[in-house]
Design a binder for these strands. Structure first.
Lengths: 207, 207
DNA sequence: TGCAAAGTTTCAATAGGTGCAAAGTATGGC
DNA sequence: GCCATACTTTGCACCTATTGAAACTTTGCA
């Protein structure tokens, strides 16, 4: 557990978390747009300017830990098991992505509110989609690297885009149609599985 | 041809076009972020304030005519031919979408630069993805409405998301890999077709 | 203890965006 | 042609995000 962090690092981490916590509290209390960066900074006891040395923008606070999920999915792709075809690898990666969302202890508390914010505030929706899209590019590249014989980069992009695109749209539509958080995840999993299986059966014969 | 527009309307249209043209010129000349809204307004001979009565934001100028494409695709979906299954309808819609991009006379000149801007400037990328995503929701809903027996709304979302998601990622990846505009469209079409055909063969047996 | 690096604060400035009230310009009826 | 009405444009004040520069504090380390 001892990460051997110096005082400096520990303080930085503490400030970072204080900023995130303060921001989420305020966002939930008064809404994203009604909350100013100075208020967040004040609540975390730093100057406004300092806020921007931790986060490039107000939007970034919300997505501060989104990288972790992506990294973990990429790790799955980078470690193929013998006999894996690209589709299998992708299926495993998607599954691990959903599981990460479902299981992450720390996220459990924040995921609801954050989700609500991201669904609700246009600029956050846009930012979320951008991040998702960029992750898809990374994923596609990783998949191509893992199975260079089987898939060109563009082909890998096609299937990654299809599986995640289908899962994402189903997730969001399910949620906006009054679904609970569980239903939404279920819809996303099922949609991805559907696309995955279609791609699998379609690609099996030719190979 | 006579649209019976009053002077008022004609003037508004002229101003709108002047703003769009001025904005594109400036963006291409000095870059998006380096161009201020006042400069655009000045170039179109209106006040800065007036700019914002035509467009809600600087980003909006770029996407000012994106609705048309969506509308035309929705129209395709709303007019099913006898015997169409959901997949056929979607295939036709996607095809008409790509054709619209390829053929639109007016777009031909602007599409290149606009594309470049949208690919390059993060805030525009995000905005573009948001618009695309919202269109997908509309598309999914239209598809569900067209084939309510065959697909639930969430199922429709899954396939729409898959086809468009796959096409989009393939398009962008192809373009960033040094592809020409033609190659990029080709990649997108092929990716969509791939996903479409996988979904079609996968769904045929069960039905 | 004392210095250099890293981090923070303060201050000022730019730019997007909004609300508001005054001024200007079509339009329709007379 | 003239006026009341409705719609636009504009100028202005103001808010907030974001960035740069300079002065100041805290750490890490010799």
């Amino acid at each position: 557990m001892s990460e051997a962090l110096g005082l400096r690092e520990r303080k930085k981490l503490r400030t970072r978390h204080a900023l995130i916590a303060a921001a989420l509290d305020l966002f939930m209390e008064k809404g994203y747009e009604q909350t100013t960066v100075s208020e967040i900074a004040a609540a975390a006891d730093v100057s406004t300017r300092t806020f921007f040395s931790y986060f490039a923008s107000k939007e970034d606070v919300i997505f501060s830990n989104s990288r972790e999920g992506v990294e973990s999915v990429l790790r799955v792709i980078a470690e193929p098991r013998p006999g894996d075809r690209a589709i299998d690898l992708l299926a495993r990666a998607v599954d691990s992505g959903f599981s990460a969302i479902t299981l992450d202890e720390q996220l459990q508390g924040e995921i609801g509110p954050i989700n609500h914010l991201v669904m609700t505030v246009p600029s956050l929706r846009a930012r979320g989609l951008l991040l998702l899209f960029e992750s898809q590019r990374e994923l596609a590249e990783a998949l191509h690297r893992a199975c260079p014989e089987e898939l060109s980069l563009v082909e890998a992009s096609a299937i990654v885009g299809a599986v995640i695109g289908g899962g994402k749209l189903a997730t969001v539509v399910s949620l906006s149609n009054g679904g609970s958080a569980e239903e939404m995840l279920k819809a996303g999993r099922e949609a991805s599985a559907l696309v995955l299986s279609a791609l699998r059966t379609a690609s099996t014969p030719p190979l």
